[in-house]
């Protein structure tokens, strides 16, 4: 029984091809935004090409180092995934199966849940308490985008938070890279986010027929928005799950914090409402990652165009930043987990 390995050359080819295809799609959809960005379209394309070339060079270096039996960060990560691929698959499918195992409607809840949530909040916030303020166009869809993104995110966090202490019996007996536990929890929860895109698009389509909101090529950017959100959630999950081992308070604290975060993010209200009344809040909002992810999704679906180029950069920055912070804290503390759980 040999340890399973991927052919790095093949992986690199797929990676580069994938990045190329995504890049072309994004460029086509976001061309008006690229032209409008500060550095100008030519400089932007050159920047893109430089980044792309850097990726190719890194892949080549990874392959050549691998031949000599040396590791690189990405190469090691890929081989770890290869080695534990089956375990990852098993853990993700377990979480997903168990979630709906004893319910009658099963996976259908993934579609139904956001719809019901939206209906309730739509009735409450558009009829009972009108907090729309700036008269948001297409409020139902505006609301649904926000709910789907934010609930998806908190679901990921809630699931992954208990990943380490919940698997205590395994962690104290078998050696498996501990990162696998929270990451698979986030992945299984994010299957739900992906599934909930279906009702979102469906409702938008039906609603749009009557209200003149048409889906556009820009929905091709939805996967990108989800990947960015999931990366952020993975970072958050790593952070929460490792803190949870040492301080069980985190669970209660996070309950409060996530509620506060939900109200701090314009999900039921719009940012227009705050303008003029609390301008400092509008400025502060720029530092709320969830605001950017939610807005990213709304621009794609409601405005039917790509977000401004700066939004891509901000979202990517938050995602990678959170991933690094979470990964760092997790890595620093993982050797001590066994002593505390």
């Amino acid at each position: 029984m040999d340890v399973k390995k991927y052919n790095l050359k093949k992986v690199s080819t797929y990676l580069i091809a994938g990045v190329l295809v995504c890049g072309v799609i994004i460029n086509l959809i976001a061309w008006p935004q690229i032209c409008a960005c500060q550095i100008g379209s030519t400089a932007f394309v050159i920047l893109e090409l430089i980044l792309f070339a850097a990726l190719c060079v890194y892949c080549m270096r990874m392959i050549s180092r691998d031949r000599r039996g040396e590791g690189t960060l990405l190469g090691n990560a890929i081989q770890t995934i290869a080695r534990y691929e089956f375990l990852i698959e098993q853990l993700v499918s377990r979480d997903f199966k168990i979630k709906y195992k004893r319910s009658v409607l099963g996976v259908f809840w993934s579609f139904l849940n956001p719809l019901l949530m939206m209906s309730i909040q739509y009735v409450v916030f558009s009829n009972l308490l009108d907090v729309r303020g700036g008269n948001v166009p297409h409020y139902a869809i505006y609301l649904l985008c926000g709910i789907v993104m934010f609930n998806g995110f908190t679901d990921c966090c809630n699931q992954s938070m208990r990943a380490i202490i919940g698997n205590a019996s395994l962690i104290t007996k078998v050696y498996v890279p501990k990162m696998i536990y929270p990451v698979t929890k986030v992945l299984s929860a994010s299957i739900n986010i992906v599934l909930s895109m279906l009702p979102l698009l469906l409702v938008t389509f039906i609603y749009g027929l009557f209200n003149g909101l048409y889906l556009n090529w820009s929905i091709l950017l939805i996967p990108l928005a989800l990947v960015l959100l999931i990366m952020f959630a993975v970072g958050m999950g790593l952070l929460l799950s490792s803190l949870m081992v040492f301080f069980h308070d985190v669970e209660f604290l996070w309950g409060v914090l996530s509620t506060a975060w939900m109200y701090a993010t314009p999900i039921i209200y719009s940012l227009e409402l705050l303008k003029g009344k609390a301008d400092w809040l509008v400025t502060l909002m720029q530092f709320n990652p969830m605001y950017h992810y939610v807005t990213f999704m709304r621009t794609i679906i409601i405005n039917g165009c790509s977000p401004a180029i700066s939004e891509y950069a901000i979202c990517l920055l938050f995602s990678v930043g959170m991933l690094l912070i979470g990964g760092y804290v997790f890595h620093k503390t993982e050797d001590k987990f066994v002593l505390y759980i």
């Binding site: 089956f86 195992k101 004893r102």
Partner: peptide, 28 residues
């Protein structure tokens, strides 16, 4: 493993064999 520590009680025996086998590091 101490008996059953890697088991998930909502899964069937069949699914648990694969889950537990994966945890122990065996390929599919």
């Amino acid at each position: 493993l101490e008996l059953g520590s890697g088991f998930d009680h909502d899964l069937t025996g069949h699914e648990n064999i694969f889950l537990n086998g994966a945890v122990l590091g065996y390929p599919k």
